[in-house]
Design a protein around this nucleic acid. Structure first.
Length: 478
RNA sequence: GGUCCCAUCGUCUAGUGGUUAGGACGCGGCCCUCUCAAGGCUGCAACACGAGUUCAAAUCUCGUUGGGAUCACCA
């Protein structure tokens, strides 16, 4: 049987990291077995629907290269792939399930939201005992036909213990009395998740169901439905959640970063994908840097972890730095350019990119690192004080006065040549390299730390701006 | 609360009866160096606790503690 997995998000407006990771694992399970990855939109809750949410889902998946083989936009042999368009299918199967004895019609009014905050002592578990369960089928059918509002509720008639196997958690045992006779088909005619996922997964021939482990306890209910229809349940792969901290899941509510937030902060999609792949999975060796294609090759669901993983932005940041450093100079320059928009000066942006690439970890950092190219910030003369470089304002003044006339005569404005030139000045005057280079760097930047050294900054700024800045520094030091 | 699940450095993790408990991030130190990065080397740092089983337990069993999930006409 062909491996088929599905990513079935509900369009609630935002792709969070845990969701994306589940999609990744689904994608990898399918692709590592040469199977298909299907996209299905679960929009049966009209109240939560958010305009444009499906677009975010498409864009995110495309951005990281997780292409689906079947889906709402591209179709496939098992469509439609949007649950609201499958309405009739669910209703048919719901009635069929009633006939098969797996469910019953219920005419009760909707249960109240927060009825009786669990009364202590009253041992009667908060399970809902439906009086409608005992209405004879013929009578119930008549009421349905007469147009009376109804829902379809699952029947849990089995006793004893349910056992099912999960790839991650192994064998799980749950008593049937723990199961709720939940609503399968709502009064609006749309199915609940509990019903829709079973029908769709079967009809779409999904072989592996991958989902958050919050579904573990309801899985026996789904198996009962499969059983009632005489269908074979899928292979279950329940994955632990991605956490914000030791006790909270990552969620939009907390304002936690979504995929798009991270991209906006200067993280590369490839790095984000790589990082989340390793949150709950490892290849069994010590490699950490993986492209999607490489993951497809070595992924194995047996190596999925059971316990929750805390999302650590610090490690993602490091990994993002690895990806940035691995970019070609041209690729990096292209990504960096938008962040130079504040710098109006006519500087050598290519050279700037080259010097930036090894030192930043997120693209967003470029803005902070390059502000002094706009103009030299106000700085205190004590900046010229540096023990290791053995400089102070006095020495700096001397150095800059030595440097200025010589630099004016330099024609080949390259890093190598400038470095040679400045070093020669140091030698000729019996000074240390740092006593020349450090003051120049401060004069050009007004900052204690800069991307690139003195001569690199000179190259980026160009001859004219370099000389202007040195002159200004000299008068400041005078 | 009932039920289910989980538990190795601060974090992500390797480990399936015998290891100096390994790697990565972060943190400290050193080297390199035109500052800061990057790169190289190095240091600190963990088996939640208690009983068993065994010649031998991070690994198996039970209990304790801690944490999570679930108990909707949400998914």
């Amino acid at each position: 049987m062909k491996t088929r997995t599905r990513f079935a998000p509900s369009p609630t407006g935002y792709m969070h990291i845990g969701n994306l990771r589940t999609a990744l694992y689904e994608y990898l399970i399918a692709k590592s077995a040469g199977g298909d990855f299907i996209l299905r939109i679960e929009d049966t809750d009209q109240k939560r629907y958010v305009e444009g949410a499906t677009d975010i889902i498409y864009k995110t998946l495309q951005r990281v290269g997780m292409n689906w083989d079947e889906g709402p936009d591209i179709g496939g042999d098992y469509g439609p792939y949007v649950q609201s368009e499958r309405r009739g299918i669910y209703a048919d199967y719901a009635h069929k399930l009633v006939e098969l004895g797996g469910a019953h019609y219920c005419f009760c009014a909707q249960k109240e939201e927060n009825d009786s905050e669990e009364e202590e002592g009253a041992e009667s578990h908060n399970k809902f005992h439906d009086p409608c369960k005992h209405i004879p089928l013929e009578e119930a059918k008549k009421r349905v036909a007469a147009g009376e509002p109804f829902v379809v509720r699952q029947n849990i008639n089995k006793k004893g213990t349910s056992i099912f196997h999960d790839v991650v958690y192994g064998d799980i045992e749950i008593d049937y009395d723990e199961l709720d006779e939940g609503v399968l088909l709502k009064s609006d005619g749309l199915p609940t998740y509990n019903f829709a996922n079973v029908i769709d997964d079967h009809l779409m021939e999904i072989s592996h169901v991958v989902r958050g482990n919050e579904y573990i306890s309801s899985t026996p209910k789904y198996n009962l439905i499969y059983e009632a229809f005489g269908w074979t349940p899928p292979v279950y792969v329940h994955v632990p959640p991605v956490m914000k901290d030791a006790q909270h899941k990552l969620s939009k509510r907390n304002g936690d970063a979504s995929f798009q937030d991270l991209v906006a902060k200067g993280y590369l999609p490839e790095a984000i994908l790589n990082y989340i792949a390793l949150l709950g999975w490892n290849p069994g060796d010590e490699r950490e840097i993986f492209s999607l294609q490489e993951l497809e090759k070595c992924f194995s669901s047996e190596r999925l972890n059971k316990s929750p993983a805390i999302f650590d932005i610090t490690k993602l940041t490091w990994m993002n730095g690895c990806y940035i450093r691995n970019l070609s100079a041209d690729e990096f320059h292209k990504l960096a350019e938008p962040y130079y928009s504040n710098i109006k000066k006519n500087i050598n942006f290519k050279a700037l990119s080259n010097v930036l690439q090894p030192r930043i970890e997120t693209l967003k950092q470029i803005e902070e690192e390059t502000d002094f190219f706009v103009e030299v910030p106000e700085y205190d003369l004590s900046l010229y004080e540096n023990k290791k470089m053995k400089t102070n304002p006095e020495i700096a003044a001397k150095a800059l006065n030595l440097v200025l006339p010589i630099l004016k005569k330099v024609d080949e404005w390259s890093n190598e040549n400038l470095f040679e030139t400045l070093k020669n000045i140091a030698v000729a005057n019996e000074m240390k390299n740092g006593q020349i280079l450090y003051p120049v760097r401060i004069a050009l930047s007004g900052k204690e730390t800069t991307p690139g050294g003195a001569t690199e900054l000179a190259v980026i700024l160009g001859k004219e701006e370099t000389l202007t800045r040195i002159e200004k520094a000299i008068s400041k030091l005078a």
